[in-house]
Design a protein around this nucleic acid. Sequence first.
DNA 1: TCTGGGGTCCTAGGACCC
DNA 2: TCTGGGGTCCTAGGACCC
Length: 409
Amino acid sequence: MHSSLKQSRIAHLDMDAFYASVELLRYPQLKGLPVIIGGRVRREDDALVKAAAEGTRQQIALEDFPRIRDYRGRGVITTATYAARQFGVNSAMGIMKAALLCPQAIMLPVDFDEYRKYSRLFKTKILELTPQMESRGIDEVYIDFSDISDTDDGGFTVAQKLQADILAATGLTCSIGVAPNKLLAKMASEFNKPNGISIIYADDIAEKIWPLPCRKINGIGPRTENKLRELGINTIGELAACDAAWLIDRFGNSYGQWLSDASHGRDERSIQTSSEPVSMSRETTFARDLHAKHDRAELGEIFTRLCEQLANDLQRKGYVGKTIGIKIRYEGFKSLTRDITAENYTADAKTIRQLGGQCLKRVPLEKRIRLLGVKISSLLRADAIAQADAEIVPRKSRQKMINPTLPLF
DNA sequence: TCTGGGGTCCTAGGACCC
DNA sequence: TCTGGGGTCCTAGGACCC
C-alpha cells in the first residue's frame, strides 16, 4: 500500500486512577479500600510524613490513616480509587460532599513530585517504542501508531505490548483506545477502563459513538451539554443529524462547524511531539474568605508569596514573560481578571509583584475574596531574550502611562 | 457542610498603524 | 473633509481540559 493511502491509527493512552494508583504503590496495605486523594498536607498527616522520612510507609496500620470524615476545610478531590468510586465519589467533587458519600474513605494529600516521577517513567517507556508521542498532562498521551502497528489488528498488539511494558516499569495499569484519529481514540480509551484496550474503526461510529451522550466528546463541557439539551439534542447521533449550518447559527462559525465534524468522528489534528508554554500562573484559595481592608496585611503577604513562586517557576524553567495578570475569585464564586503588558520581559519577583499590584488597583474590593492568583503570559525562552533584544527594534509602546502610585496591597 | 490549581484556546471590542 | 479596510496588539471574559 502506498504510504499516503495508509490508514492513520492514533492511540490514546490514559493511566488508570493515576494519583491514587501511585499512592497504592507506596501504601500497598490500602489496596482494595476506598482511598481519596486531595487537599494539602495537614497536621493529621503527621504519621504519614514521619513514616515517609523513616521509610516505614508500608508499616502504617490501617487505623492510623487519616479519614475523609475528619477533614475540615475546602477543596475538591483530585482522584479516587475504584473502590471509592463505587460510592459515587469522583474527581473534582467537593471534599465535603465526598465525605458524606463515603466517610470511611482514607484521605491522602497530593504529592505531585511523586506523580511526576511515575509520569516520566511511563512516558519514557512509550518513547522507547516511538518518538511520535504527544503529552496531554501528567497521566495521558496520544501516540501515532500509523507506522508501528500491523494493519490487520488495528493496533491491538502494540497496545498490549505497551500495557505490559508500562506495568513492568511502573507497576501501574493504563487503558488504551486506538482509532483513526485523536477524537475517537480519546473516546475509545474510556470504553474498557481500567486496564483495557478498545479498537475503533471508521465503520464503528454509528454503532459505538452515536448512542453516547454528547458530553463524551472531548471539547463538549457542561455548558454546551446544557445548551444542546435545551435544543433537544442528547446523543452524539442526534448531534450528527443536525445540519452544520443550523449548528453554526447557534454556536458560532468555528465551534458550530467543530460540533458537526466531531459528531461524525472527523478530526484531522496531528500528534504534536513538543510544545512551548503559553502562560504560567500561581493561585491559592484561602482557608476562609478574606477582606481587602480587614485582612489587608495577610492578603499582601500571600500575594507577594505567589509572585515569588511564579518568578521562581519562570527562572527554574528558563522563561521570561511580558504580560502580568491577576485573578480574583469573590465569595459567591464570581471571578475576574486584570492584566497589563510591560515594556520589557521579566522573570523578576519584584517586577511581577509591582505590576500585579497595579492590576489589583483596578478591581472592586468590597466583597470578600476567596482566591487570589497571579499569571504571566507572552512568554519567551530566557536564552532567546538577549538575542531578541539585540535584533528586534522594539515597537513603540502603545499602552497608556500608569501613575506610579503605591500598589494597593 | 458545594465548587483546587494549572493550563489552552477562542471571541470581541477598541486602539493604533498603514 | 469625509470615508475606507486590513492587520496587530491589548484587555476581559468564558468554555473546556487534566
